[in-house]
């Protein structure tokens, strides 16, 4: 123990002559540009595929019918309703969103005294952050579902020109599985992926029992389940 040990602590007082570092008005402080705040949904872009519902490990997202949005080919007519009593702002739903319609603003303040008010359908229920510019958007170069479309082999033009052999040669089993893997099993007519019947484990309900249990209005989805232009099954490939 030295004299320094007694005197040196008093240097703490130099802060007396410095300005406090408190944020003057914390209530109106904007979050970072990438902040994962409350959800926004572009209802025009959204097709109601329900992939966000599938991936949400908290069962926070339910697909609900929305007034004014018709069920039509390529649009289930459902829109995600998010329960902020469940959400953990992991943004997997934003990452997985097929149409990139679901994004997050950087708004973060929401106080209510009734716990039931925290369920809302972004884009449909108007909120003050609906038009926020900043916030988390999924980077365009990253998807957590399959990315590259497996290219289907075709005959070379030289061979095609003088034969009746089928030009499109189809997928091998591996390619078909890879291609089927891109499917999110939304059940909507889809030009890019084969339908759920093609891959060996059928519906999201059996794969993700947790979220399936929470998704109540499944009955509303059934009319939008037309089996469309099914390509051949992998076994036949």
């Amino acid at each position: 123990m030295s004299v320094r040990d007694v005197l040196s602590p008093f240097t703490a007082w130099k802060n007396l002559f410095r300005d406090p570092v408190s944020i003057p008005d914390p209530l109106n402080r904007a979050a970072a540009p990438r902040y994962r705040g409350f959800h926004q949904n572009d209802v025009e872009k959204c097709i109601g595929c329900g992939t966000c519902e599938t991936i949400c490990q908290n069962g926070a997202i339910d697909m609900v019918p929305v007034e004014g949005i018709e069920t039509k080919s390529g649009d289930s007519g459902l829109r995600p309703r998010i329960d902020y009593g469940r959400c953990c702002w992991c943004a997997l739903c934003v990452d997985v969103c097929m149409t990139k319609s679901l994004t997050m603003s950087n708004a973060y303040t929401w106080v209510e005294n009734d716990p039931d008010l925290f369920c809302f359908t972004p884009g449909v229920d108007k909120k003050h952050w609906d038009n926020a510019e900043l916030g988390y958007h999924c980077p365009t170069d990253r998807r957590i579902t399959g990315q590259v479309r497996a290219h289907m082999r075709e005959l070379e033009p030289e061979t095609r020109i003088d034969s009746f052999v089928e030009i499109v040669q189809g997928y091998s089993v591996e390619e078909a599985i890879l291609e089927a893997d891109r499917c999110v099993a939304c059940g909507l007519p889809c030009a890019t992926a084969i339908t759920s019947a093609a891959w060996n484990c059928s519906t999201p309900a059996t794969r993700f029992p947790a979220s399936a249990a929470a998704s109540a209005p499944t009955s509303a989805r059934t009319p939008a389940l037309p089996a469309t232009k099914a390509t051949r099954s992998p076994s036949a490939g």
């Binding site: 979050a31 970072a32 540009p33 990438r34 702002w89 992991c90 943004a91 988390y136």
Partner: peptide, 26 residues
């Protein structure tokens, strides 16, 4: 604050995805 601008959250960053990370540096 540095975490927030880099990852988009203050406490639970949820940034290190299996396979890589979510985003680059701002």
């Amino acid at each position: 604050d540095r975490f927030e601008e880099m990852t988009g959250a203050r406490i639970y960053h949820m940034f290190i995805l299996p396979g890589g990370v979510r985003d680059g540096l701002p």
